[in-house]
Nucleic acid binder design. Structure first.
Lengths: 342, 342
DNA sequence: TCTTAGCACTCGCACTATAAGAGTGCTAAC
DNA sequence: GTTAGCACTCTTATAGTGCGAGTGCTAAGA
């Protein structure tokens, strides 16, 4: 329903605004190469585009800026992904250059490099630790009444927590317990660990081993307490660089929202496969109504997935970010699957 | 050299400015209870105080604000610590209410509560992990050529890292190695672990156990790689609430500086015992020239120490913060020593 | 000699007026 | 259908004005 010329004008307008952050005027556009009609024509077309809701004016006699609908159309129909420049590729590859063998480290690095490359904020979600499989459990006594519980998963992830133990339990008893735990719980996912531990506790209690039951139950409590999420940030402060954000209150609430881990699922919907772009009020959180978020998933092996998100202004360099995320998602999947398989 | 009246005026001026963030005028001061002389007299005294460098004007006909020297004098001579209000004490005590048995958790909570209580940014340094003593070493094989190294210290702290192992090492060989490691390295501080591991590697190599030597040496490398510092923050975003900070660039560089762990020793000088106040340009970092930093140390047992710092504007509520930190330092020392001893 | 009332003076700030500039919408001619 | 021309709108920058808060100084009073 949009004419060729309207498409061209919309595209150039969005591109220009993304680049300059200034409302785009008809004269300015007419000067661009690739535009072979006069500013008056452009004015007419722009008025039409505004009528259709793709552009808006900041005030009566200003140039135009893209509306959310305009960005959406741009993203859906006018985005011509171009190959990444060499420098970007080199930078991205540098994430993997020193063969780190820990998933967590690779993700951390990705978050950092990505934010440097984009000047936006990056949020990376690691794979769901709860789906990892218990490789080994151990209990290391610290004092007469405390010990540290350690769970190693098949991914090399280590969970640990100090917990109280019944007074006067001797080391060989603990060892016996640990053996029972390992016999029965190795191979179980962290997700199932809680219920399984409950069953084991019942079992032990039934056999009238009260003291062990107590140990089991505190061990269980220690193990289920929520640990920090595996969310990694890069360039949290980059928001402060964006000319689009100047209102301290908005910045504050945006930063607040991003740090709060309970909001993360609202920013990055879980289970979203592939690349997604959420523009302005398309985001679930009102604090992000001036932001665009681009998310992409990556795979580790066949079953596990993680997510990458870039949070920036609506006036985001969509073309570049999409290419970057596409590439990084692929690279990350390959590298993390390699680490995982190895 | 300052008269009683000048002291009084200086004190009231600083107090007022701390509270209102507005330059203090003579009329305004004259109205205060406790002031029994006219605004003209106050004007004269203020002019003197300005001459001596304790006060300054923001412009010719404005009220006065304290100069850095003024704050310094106030802090050194006019600070009458008053007992903490009940609410504050209750809040502080809430840090310890659910008997957490992990140093790290307690410190994290302290950072959080402290920032909520002050509306400033808190930075807490945990005890130097490198001085902790190895309680147990273990190696959990993940695949044929990777394993995770785990070090548990006497404090319950767990360091872990995935590292490559020579292909085809069988579990019993690894177990043997772990036994050797434990026999020889339990009781060594993390600080000494590196050199001690080097010696052990040499020893193993001498006995022509090349494959074990390789394991030892990669284990060593894995273990010395720097892990994140034990620095905990609270209220990083509180800076954005302060009316004193409005320049986005300054805010940005201040936040940058605080996040960068290499700058931490410049913010909190290590080995500083007791309470210290650094005002404006007294701080080592130029990004903090508009800030005041109050630091206090706390003890864990007889040997270990940590630090608490509050970063806020120069117009900081010194009285309150000093009382808070004094109390928290004491409470934290008691609680962490208890956990440590237990 | 110290204190204070009085007063002229200085700025910052908020408000208004004005001019310049960028951009628009509309009309009429091509 | 396109475009030149033009009146119009609105922002931004700059200057001018009045008000208010606050100062410094002077001179009178204690």
């Amino acid at each position: 329903m949009l004419t060729e010329r309207q498409l061209l004008i919309l595209k150039v307008t969005v591109d220009d605004y993304i680049q300059s952050a200034q409302p785009v005027g008809s004269n300015q556009l007419a000067k661009k190469s690739g535009i072979s009609f006069s500013s008056a024509t452009i004015r007419n077309e722009m008025a039409d585009l505004e009528g259709m809701g793709f552009l808006e004016k900041t005030h009566t006699s200003s140039g135009r800026i893209p509306s959310e609908r305009g960005y959406r159309y741009y993203v859906d129909h006018l985005l011509t992904p171009r190959p990444l420049p060499k420098e970007d590729i080199i930078q991205l590859r540098s994430i993997f250059e020193d063969k780190i063998s820990e998933t967590e480290e690779v993700i951390k690095r990705s978050a950092m490099i990505l934010s440097e490359l984009t000047n936006y904020t990056s949020i990376l979600l690691g794979p769901d630790v709860r789906r990892h499989i218990v490789k080994k459990l151990s209990i290391v006594p610290l004092t007469t009444n405390s010990a540290v519980a350690i769970i190693v998963t098949d991914s090399g992830h280590v969970e640990n927590r100090v917990f109280p133990i019944p007074e006067g339990l001797n080391p060989s008893e603990i060892e016996k317990m640990v053996n029972i735990l390992n016999e029965r719980l190795v191979g179980v996912s962290l997700y199932d660990l809680h219920t399984r531990l409950e069953q084991e506790t019942m079992m032990v209690m039934k056999q009238h081993m009260e003291r062990y039951g107590e140990l089991f139950s505190t061990f269980r409590q220690a193990v289920i307490l929520p640990r920090e999420k595996n969310v990694y940030y890069g360039g949290k402060l980059n928001i402060l660089n964006q000319p689009d954000f100047h209102d301290l209150h908005k910045i504050r609430s945006l930063m607040d929202v991003m740090e709060e881990s309970e909001h993360i699922p609202m920013i990055i919907p879980v289970g979203n496969q592939g690349l997604h772009i959420r523009i302005g009020s398309e985001n679930a959180l009102s604090a992000m109504e001036d932001c665009s978020v681009i998310t992409v998933s990556y795979d580790i092996g066949e079953e596990q997935t993680g997510s990458i998100a870039i949070v920036g202004p609506k006036r985001m360099d969509y073309k570049r970010i999409v290419s970057l995320l596409d590439t990084l998602s692929g690279d990350l999947s390959k590298e993390l699957t390699r680490i995982f398989r190895k």
